[in-house]
Design a protein around this nucleic acid. Structure first.
Lengths: 215, 215
DNA sequence: CCTTGAATACTTGTATGGTAGCATCCAAAA
DNA sequence: TTTTGGATGCTACCATACAAGTATTCAAGG
């Protein structure tokens, strides 16, 4: 129950169904899902660890507002990790991985223009496939919280952000670089790709000021 | 209460007072600390997230055995992050940081041979000072779980591990490199330093087989 | 002697009652 | 008009009781 609710609330926050700053009490959630307060409380603890909500003792629990600095820090760290990983992968010359990645890109091309959830899932699939192929499950697990912070912005910014066709191009270039075995080029592709994802962050923060905390 | 107990148990596990594989029930801990099961339970959740314990529903809770592969993965990721950070710091040429770091090294030299806790704390102080000076608080926070995994081995291996005098030398070389502004050299120093820390891991795993899980 | 099965003693998970602390509102006094 | 004090309602937090599931034990039967 608690774990289940944790996943539900987590995606609800990331996808923006629970807006930043919104108050969410244990009682409210326990009523909404017809369970007791205890599982709710335990879900809140996990969400607090992930910095998706903020629990203020005896005062209330709130969906955390997005921090521009925090998101940029997260992106920076993700860049460090995934660039390092893609360097390893480029040197392995594994044809089976290339095949999987190209298949994912095809599926990305097939997604309908409005279906952002599907595209983001396929985007994550591609990055995960690379990481796991490098044997970096541990690193991938660590990036979970990082991706959560970034995804909050991405779900908020589909109308402003880079069109998916552009992202597909970047993925293609990335896979090409991996296939060619050029680690430097692959690293450069990954770097540009990850930086471009949040290119619209300033606009978003300006357009939804109430969703962000200024720091 | 719950947060307090979490810190207590966390250090107890890292320092080896709670041995890997040991069963620790909610009731046992609630009696030992004279509190109810609920705060204990919430502390367990956090420890489970950090992979320091494993909660098996309706079966029991156990201190996680150390995974050699897991520790090496953690070290690898820490290397990626801290090497990147020390590169930034080396390019900043900040005299005040150098002063702080040298002061920490002096304090490290003054620690008594047997006082491993104090030395490890000062070791962490130095690494944290570098990270925070680079403005990488986010990255430092992410490495908390990583350091926990590594520290479990370090606390287990004081008799076998690299002598502290050697570590002090490595720290000195690292700070020298930072002061000289040579990012490549600083990165190399950090890399060697972090790899050396766990040089005795194979011996430890062989000497305490019951503390480790074979993977 | 070996196998099987039920009773028992554990475990974690959930539900609920009560407590302490904070914020708000509103009236009374300066 | 402004300030202050207290009552009220809210919150997260802790304690306790109950439920559900697992592992063990031990005795009965083949």
């Amino acid at each position: 129950m608690g774990a289940q609710l944790h996943r539900i609330l987590r995606t609800a926050i990331i996808e923006g169904d629970l807006v930043p700053g919104q108050a969410i009490s244990e009682i409210e959630m326990s009523k909404r899902f017809s369970i007791s307060r205890q599982p709710v409380r335990e879900a809140f603890i996990k969400l607090g660890e992930e910095r998706l909500i903020e629990v203020l003792p005896q005062r209330g629990t709130y969906v955390r507002k997005i921090s521009v600095k925090g998101v940029l820090d997260a992106r920076h760290l993700r860049e460090i990790i995934e660039v390092s990983i893609v360097r390893e992968v480029a040197l392995k010359h594994d044809a089976s991985l290339i095949k999987v990645l190209r298949h994912l890109i095809v599926k990305q091309q097939k997604t309908k223009p409005g279906d952002s959830r599907s595209f983001l899932a396929l985007d994550e699939d591609l990055h995960r496939a690379i990481a796991l192929h490098a044997g970096r499950e541990y690193a991938w697990r660590v990036t979970e919280g990082i991706r959560a912070q970034m995804d909050r912005v991405r779900f908020l910014s589909f109308d402003f952000a880079t069109p998916t066709s552009q992202l597909v191009c970047e993925h293609t270039a990335l896979v090409d670089a991996i296939e060619s075995g050029d680690a430097d080029l692959a690293a450069q592709c990954m770097e540009q790709h990850l930086r471009g994802i949040l290119s619209s962050l300033p606009l978003i923060a300006e357009h939804y000021p109430e969703h962000f905390v200024d720091d």
